[in-house]
């Protein structure tokens, strides 16, 4: 995957655009306290490939699996790594939404436990 001199800057700027996948990667890195390099290693790709994927559109909820597979195939990355990152972000988003609503604490605890279980290797 080519690595032009503008790529890193474009990926950094794209991380501030909620519609782009880079914003989700940035959020995940923030949650998990990961460097760009560490996330690239987790996804099994180079930093340049991670930057290219960051410039893709965030997968549509109605075509989530197909979009993730398309991105993974295009950049030669194992889709399971992307699924894991995006699922983690989705659960976090849902928990943030629910924490602002009167959901039963028991149900929320179950979701948190499920998320923690997913995090274990």
């Amino acid at each position: 995957m080519m690595n032009p001199d503008w790529l890193e800057t474009a990926a950094e700027r794209g991380a501030r655009v909620p519609e782009l996948l880079g914003s989700m990667f940035a959020w995940y890195r923030d949650l998990e306290d990961l460097s760009v390099q560490a996330l690239a290693e987790q996804l099994g790709c180079t930093e340049a490939t991670l930057h290219w994927m960051s410039l893709c559109r965030r997968p549509r909820s109605e075509a989530f699996a197909a979009d993730v597979l398309q991105i993974a195939e295009r950049f030669g990355v194992d889709p399971s790594g992307i699924f894991q990152v995006l699922r983690h972000i989705e659960v976090t988003e849902a928990l943030i939404t629910q924490s602002n609503s009167p959901v039963e604490p028991g149900a929320r605890a179950l979701q948190l436990a499920a998320r923690d279980h997913e995090k274990k290797p």
Binding site: W6, A10, G14, L20, W52, L55, R57, R60, Q70, I71
Partner: peptide, 16 residues
């Protein structure tokens, strides 16, 4: 059409 890879292609093909 909101193709997920299209934005990366816009950068790749047009930014130079």
């Amino acid at each position: 059409e909101r193709d997920p890879v299209a934005p990366a292609d816009v950068f790749r093909l047009l930014i130079p």
